[in-house]
Design a protein around this nucleic acid. Sequence first.
DNA 1: CGCGATTTGTGCACGGCTTCACAAGCGCCT
DNA 2: AGGCGCTTGTGAAGCCGTGCACAAATCGCG
Lengths: 240, 240
Amino acid sequence: MSQQRTGPTDGPDFPALPEATVARLPEYLRALHHLAEEGHDTVSSEGLAAAAGVNSAKLRKDLSHLGRTGTRGVGYDVTLLIDQIEQVLGLTHRRAVALVGVGNLGHALAGYAGFGNRGFRIAALFDADLGRVGEQINGLIVRHIDDLPAVVVEESISIAVIATPAHAAQHVCDHLVAAGVTSVLNFAPCVLSVPEGVDVRKVDLAIELQILSFHEHRKSALTALPAVQKPKRGEAEVAS
Amino acid sequence: MSQQRTGPTDGPDFPALPEATVARLPEYLRALHHLAEEGHDTVSSEGLAAAAGVNSAKLRKDLSHLGRTGTRGVGYDVTLLIDQIEQVLGLTHRRAVALVGVGNLGHALAGYAGFGNRGFRIAALFDADLGRVGEQINGLIVRHIDDLPAVVVEESISIAVIATPAHAAQHVCDHLVAAGVTSVLNFAPCVLSVPEGVDVRKVDLAIELQILSFHEHRKSALTALPAVQKPKRGEAEVAS
DNA sequence: CGCGATTTGTGCACGGCTTCACAAGCGCCT
DNA sequence: AGGCGCTTGTGAAGCCGTGCACAAATCGCG
């Protein structure tokens, strides 16, 4: 086995997954739920790979890290695989998430139903603006950011979403970490500095558009040239 | 030069950037704008790398693909570098973007000021729900999705954002592509199938949380073990 | 004018990820 | 029971990306 991930926690029942695999498991999970709803009880790697938009060999290698999961000649048991992936991702219980910043975007995230269906529960909303504190959104009352430490402990929150303006994000992040949060999803367009042991993931809408813009630019340069145009029709050219 | 990108459009004035570099340029750009506001007119690779949260060697290699940009012994000219990156990303003119799906999330995106500051202009809003058509958001009127072809041509839109429910996303995407859109940013939790030549990028909030959940799970397994705890304090352990 | 301090640009090696291609295993049918 | 077709699991090869470490280049100062 050449590509073994040597993370700090390679326990016996901890498969030590490559990071790239971890990033794809949620996609497989979503595809599997979809297949389950359609009544399938087994899937081939080919089928699941198509539903998740990846190469089938890659899918098989990813799943092989979870231990023996498939049956040769048959495929994968859908519900069993769902259970295994949810187990590995730590989705066996519904995790409590705090959302900080109830502005334009935060408001939308608070009302987004997609979280509830996929293993998470928004347990608390926070904002620094006293004008927003007390407002009720989707059954939750917005609390002041000073209540953070108490609520984080009370609801055993370990994951937080930052949806504040960029200039406030680092400050909020520091408070979150101090309160015990160890994973942060950052929507603010800035770099967050955190101590070791805290994970940060970032989502920046403008960055995504700018990457698309680059490819647009590239494409328009193509058509401007004498251009060897190949009107060949393929499938799903997904960038990242 | 070992890592040369051999894309389909490696023209003379088209540097053929590695995809990983392209994905980081917007981050550099944001950091540079921030530095410019603070009055800096030059930056060292070390300084810019810190501001963008990356390794300085990586930054230098990324920028070296743009041609000679820095001055040895001095650093990079901030405004010049901004111009160069904007040039490469095709941000010299403000690109028109269409937003389809004015629900919870779409509403927030339509009101998000971050687009305007960073090279984009939301030129049109669409929805399939007649109850929402005609509504005015941020100075734009929501139009019915049947108007797509006309508006895309009229406003010369090449980039679209899909913020519809998952079950409608593929249908909407097909219409967008048929109308001439060649880049799609998809917020719906599903895989989109598009013809060759069309780029798709995806943002899935639940997936990001599930990846964080995995690491949380991993961390809690760590503390449960006899645990070689290293309370060493580091900086910015960013995943992805 | 020359020297030293500083910072860029990059050759190189290493590791991770992807993909192909095939052997191993499983079920079904005869 | 045996063979056949199908599908998984994986060895191996190649590609891409990262980061070190250093040579090349530039500026400022004496």
